[in-house]
Simulated scan of single mutants.
Amino acid sequence: MNLKESLEKKRFVVTSEIQVPMGDEEPEHLVESLGRVKGRVDGVSIQEMELEGVVSDTIKSCSLLKANNFNAIYQTTTRDKNRYQLQKDLTQAHETGVDNLLVFTEDYRITGDSLQETMFFHVDSGKLGSVLDHLKKGMTIEGKELEARAEFLLGSGVETPWGKNMPKKGMEEMEDMINVGTGYFLTTPIFDVEQFAKFMKQVDPFKVPVIAEVMILRTAGMGKFLNRHFKSGLVPEWVIQKLAQAPDKKKASMDLFADTIKNLRDVCQGVHIITMGSADHLVDYLNAAKLR
C-alpha cells in the first residue's frame, strides 16, 4: 500500500527521513540502514542538499529506495528554482518511479540524520501549481506533450504555533497549498499534544490529513542545543528536565516518544519521525511506541 492509499483509508501513517549520501558515500547504505524498518514505515523522505559545493543526488537515492520497496518521498523547495528547473526535476523523479513530493512553507527545518538546519522559506505556490498542472495533463510548460502524465501525492509543511492561534497568514498559506493540490500537511515538531489539538481544531475545516512531526530526543543536551541554535522554546523545559533527571536516559527518551505517539493517535493522521542521529535508532523507538 502506498502513502496515498494509506491516507485515503485513514490509516495512522508513519514516515521518517534519512540523510542523502554525499560525496564518496555509497547510496546503497541507505537501504542497509533502513533494512530493519522495512514494512513498518509508510514513506521515507530524502531532501535535496548542498554542502560545501557537493550536491546530493536526491532523485537517484529516491529511485534506489523505490527499487527496494520503500515509498520514497522526494523533498524539495521552489525558492531557487525557476519553472523549467522544477519541471525537469519533477519529471525526472516521476520517470524513476517516485510519486511522493514534499515541499515546505516554514522558514527553517531541522532535518536528516544530524543536527542540521535547512532554510526553505516560503513556497511559491503559483510556480509549483503551474508545473504540477501541466505535468498532470501530460504537457510541459512549453506546450510539448510528455510520454506519460506525472501526478504526485503532494505534502506541504506547515508551522504549528506554540500555544497560539494559527495566524491569518498561516491559514492563507494552507489554503494556497490546498488549491495547488496538497494531499496532506506535515507540521513542525510537536511536544505539547494538548496545544497541538487546539491547532487541529482550527484547521479541521480544511479536511486535509495532518501528519505530526516527532523528534527522537536522546539527551537533555540535544534539547538545549535545539533551543539555543534553532528556535527558543522549541523543546519544552519539562522535556529537558525529564531527560536530565532520569537515571536511565534511554528509557526516559523512549517513554517520552511513546507517550507522544500514543496521545497523537486520536488527534491527527500520522507521525513523521526525525531520528536526530543514525536511522539505526529508529527500530527501537518504533517498538517502544508499538508502531507496527
Rank of each mutant, 00 (worst) to 15 (best):
Y108G: 15
E145G: 12
G23M: 04
P247W: 02
L264W: 03
L243P: 10
G143R: 12
W162M: 14
E117K: 11
M22Q: 09
F191E: 03
Y285G: 02
L226C: 00
D80L: 11
V193Q: 05
R36F: 08
C268D: 05
S61V: 00
N100L: 08
E159P: 01
E159L: 06
T76W: 02
M22P: 00
M177H: 08
K242Q: 15
V55M: 09
K249P: 05
G157F: 03
T188W: 03
W162N: 08
S253I: 03
Q19V: 00
T91L: 14
R265C: 05
L234I: 15
V158W: 02
G39S: 08
I274M: 10
D255I: 10
E145F: 03
K224R: 15
D113C: 06
I273C: 04
I273A: 02
S278P: 05
F121P: 02
G277D: 12
E50C: 11
F230Y: 15
E172T: 09
G170K: 01
S6Y: 10
E172W: 06
V103W: 06
I141R: 05
V123R: 00
M174L: 10
L3D: 11
F120R: 07
F199W: 10
T76R: 06
V235E: 08
F70E: 00
K201N: 14
G53T: 12
A288R: 02
T140R: 05
P205C: 13
L135G: 11
L286K: 07
G129I: 04
G126M: 03
I216G: 07
I141E: 13
E142D: 15
L153M: 14
K168Y: 11
V54M: 08
M177R: 10
E48A: 06
L226Q: 01
T260W: 05
E117W: 00
T160G: 01
L264N: 02
I178N: 12
P161F: 04
D113H: 04
V210C: 06
A67C: 05
L153Y: 09
K251G: 00
L154S: 05
G23L: 04
C268H: 07
